[in-house]
Amino acid sequence: MEQLIYLYGFIPENETKSNPLPKMKGFDDKGSIYTVPVDSMEAVVCGLDEREFSEKALQEKTENDMEWLQQKALHHHHTIMDLNNKYTLIPLQFCTIYKNKDRLYQTVEPKKEKMKNVLENLKEKEEWNLKIYCDNEQLKDDISQYSPAIEAKKQEIDQLSPGRRFFEMKKIDRLIDDELEKEKSQICEEIHEQLNQFAIEATVKKNWNKEMTGRQEHMCWNSVYFLSKQMVELLKDKMLQIEKSLEKRGFTLELSGPWPAYHFSDLK
């Protein structure tokens, strides 16, 4: 019976010569991970039993066995992270599987020149993720105290009768809500601009809702930066400096990395 090939990623051939692949368990938790030479690259793979890991079986597992999915997702991630710590790596998506080695070669053949360029471009660079969270209430307090627009409105209202003042106060609440959103996006854009100066490339991603993050604060920014290794310390210092300056306004900045270059390995 033929073995399926699970593909984790590609690394430059010369890097495995000086730094051989460590022993790592494969996707089935039985076999080992090994490399297959493809031109001047190495594909990092493991074999899978066709009977156990058919398309149908995998589909069934990913839909109905969440525990399995979690375990395998973590396996994929940890393997990719270990490879990324040792080598320049094009990371692949979860469950990229070929029927056999020939099929892997056939798929890579027309793309290998682009892949080599991507690998060259990934050398000595890292991917970092920034998430910004905001405590809306804290920022609202800050806005209602310090915003000139709100302050002017408040003074205007002070002159009114108590009945009208009530309705005008409601308007102020709405004004504060509008200001809050404006302020949040403006501050996030500014932070991004400041951090982006260290990056070669950046991507802004969508924010997750509270159900996804499980946090009290709102996520108001999510972006990834691709930068050369020597810029990383500068990025971190800048981030900490910005965070400190915004602490009292309810912002939290979270930088994580280095990630495998998931967002910057596209074969454009």
Binding site: L4, L7, G9, L58, L92, I97, Y98, K111, D266, L267
Partner: peptide
């Protein structure tokens, strides 16, 4: 990380 596609479609 979708540099290339696999054979199995899941």
């Amino acid at each position: 990380g979708i540099a290339i596609k696999g054979d199995l479609i899941i």
